[in-house]
Design a protein around this nucleic acid. Structure first.
Lengths: 236, 236
DNA sequence: CGAAAGTGCGTACGAGATAAACAGTGAGGG
DNA sequence: CCCTCACTGTTTATCTCGTACGCACTTTCG
């Protein structure tokens, strides 16, 4: 492996070999990332400071900088770690397999709501994310789609999962948010300018929070329908 | 308008009336938000500090807190301001109209790349964003979709625009990023474990950056195809 | 015409990321 | 065998930034 241009911590996530000199390390990247994920799961991204993570591990903040050169890298590794189980696929048909991939992705985001708030810093370079992509390409390989179309499909699906999780988390954080929200809108909207929005507020759909899975399943079905149409066309 | 539960700055964005007592204000919310947007456009979100924005306006940082109670509110207003022209629609057919809305949304994100990095803090409560939603609902009102389906459709589309902009901005920031990226992957991927990914790297699709608009148009077409199928089904 | 509400702003504090310097450690070359 | 030096964890210090607080000034209403 020649120079990859990647930060050392990312290379370490791929299992780069350690130098042999010097004292043994007291920690490991995995433990640090796991601790960081635990902190974020427990108290959110705002509570995720280097000192807090170090505290959980019983060391000092600066120790972490022997493993990660900046907090951003830690965040990148965290967003990779949550996808360990996202690429599990049982079917070999493209449609059910893509469905599994989509839900795997969504499951990761749902289990770790903070992940969607971490800005994407570049193209995927971490193991689990690339594993997900690889699996997706494998699943789509029997289809007549072009390489670009396969890529677009996967980016669309992962983006949709990310997007759905964003909405589900930030919108549905509180329990009876929708009634409150409807009330707020009812009070702030100039009535004559927003007729459709005001009308929909009285719909039971808006006043009760429906299960977020339904929304995702619906959107996914739309996309896969569109894709199926394209595949059928290209197959003829 | 009784109590909306919204921050004062958001109510101000809706044109709430000012108290009459006290000296006249030297600034206005609009000017502050515009200055903040200009800073972010010029130097990115990282350069956006309260003092920087105040500096551009010739006042002190703390003055801004008379208009906005926290930086988060300023960010919220910034993400609203960029959508001024996003809801312009000429057609009344649902498909072309939705296309216009989608591109309007994407245009906003493309013109202000930093916007996608601002975490969503809750359901939309700001004028331009709700205007976009209202327009979308109006456009979909002749269709046989349920209220929930209309809402899902619009959230899916706006999410897709956001998502596409995220990718386009963060991935394509540099000019010849793709060749570099392909090289990086080629060096970091364990060859036997990622056959499809490695194979696609040699595809011209991946080695040259294609116009990002193509990707969005493609994904949008998939979604609208899926939607059209549903509408046809429900119409019978 | 005061009081009260409202304004801009200087000061100060606290949190947090991280650079720099330092003392201990242990594998490999002589 | 031991010394060297790459490597380790840590302590201390710095710098940036958001924002609470309080002060002095300015309007308008009772």
């Amino acid at each position: 492996m020649t120079d990859t241009g990647l930060p050392a911590s990312i290379e370490a996530a791929w299992g780069a070999q350690r130098p042999t000199r010097g004292p043994k390390r007291a920690l490991s990247l995995d433990r640090i990332v796991a601790a960081a994920v635990a902190v974020a799961d427990a108290d959110g991204l705002d509570a995720l400071s280097m000192s807090r993570v170090a505290g959980e591990l019983g060391t000092s903040a600066m120790s972490l900088y022997r493993y990660v050169s900046a907090k951003d890298e830690l965040l990148t590794l965290m967003t990779d770690a949550i996808f360990i189980d996202a690429a599990a696929v049982t079917s070999s048909d493209w449609r059910p397999a893509l469905t599994e991939l989509a839900w795997g992705c969504l499951r990761a985001y749902r289990a770790h709501p903070w992940a969607v708030r971490i800005p994407i810093s570049g193209p995927p370079v971490t193991p689990h994310q690339l594993r997900w992509l690889e699996t997706g390409l494998a699943v789509l390989s029997p289809t007549p789609l072009t390489a670009a179309e396969k890529m677009s499909t996967l980016l669309l699906i992962s983006g949709m999962a990310r997007n759905d999780a964003t909405l589900a988390n930030d919108l549905g954080a509180q329990d009876n948010l929708m009634p409150t929200y409807a009330q707020t809108l009812g009070r702030i909207l100039p009535p004559q300018d927003f007729p459709h929005l005001l009308a929909i507020l009285t719909t039971p759909v808006m006043t009760q929070d429906d299960h977020p899975d339904v929304e995702f399943a619906w959107a996914l079905a739309r996309i896969l329908d569109g894709l199926a149409a394209l595949i059928t066309t290209k197959s003829e």
